[in-house]
Design a protein around this nucleic acid. Structure first.
Lengths: 105, 105
DNA sequence: CCCATAGTTCGAATATTATCGAACTTAAGT
DNA sequence: ACTTAAGTTCGATAATATTCGAACTATGGG
């Protein structure tokens, strides 16, 4: 009973970003890798970033990344294009994303 | 059957630090606050940092902080003195700790 | 209109985690 | 010795998370 076009994803405003939740989101290896790849690719569909993992698993991780404000997802045709909310995260937590993503893998 | 003096705490070498685990450790509000206070105090006993929480709970959190390499604990008399392994963390993850701890509470 | 594609949602199993009381241990003081 | 102080460890419980299959839903193409 859900409608993709009528119910776009909820993206929290910057004012609702919470440091602890952001750190938690990034503490999962799968999610950290997603964020890393988005940082280099600029944007990517969900399918491009699964490492052979089931769609439902990836969908779960993307939702968490969206919920904490790290990722923006927009529907383009049948695919969901994801990108980092870099400016938003930077404005709320200056230097944080850079400090984390610049660390060696 | 444990012996405090014979079994000092295990502190992982810098080479074993793992970014994801460190982020996870800091994603808990209780632990993040411990680390924040250690950053300002320099060092503190376990008791000084409980927020009225039971000792067993605090002991749990300190162990996690030790296990990921964030905190050093040494026995001094009957108390355990904790301090941040700032230099170690910095050497492995330059700028990370600063970036996290400088964020507004 | 039918079908494939892309991804979400639901449900359930499994695994981790947080919290705390109770029992324990060591060091230090009396 | 006895007692207190400071933490740790154990055990149990409750809350959360991860993973994935199955069913579902738009969109776009033939």
């Amino acid at each position: 009973m859900y409608d993709l076009s009528m119910r776009p994803f909820k993206h929290p405003p910057v004012s609702e970003f919470v440091l602890e939740r952001l750190l938690y989101a990034l503490s999962d290896p799968v999610r950290l890798k997603i964020v890393r790849r988005l940082a280099t690719l600029g944007e990517a569909s969900c399918g491009e970033l699964d490492g052979g993992r089931p769609k439902s698993t990836m969908s779960h991780h993307f939702r968490i990344l969206r919920d904490v404000g790290l990722v923006n997802t927009q529907t383009v045709g049948t695919t969901h294009m994801n990108s980092l909310r870099k400016d938003d995260v930077d404005s709320r937590f200056p230097g944080l994303l850079e400090a984390i993503l610049s660390q060696p893998e």
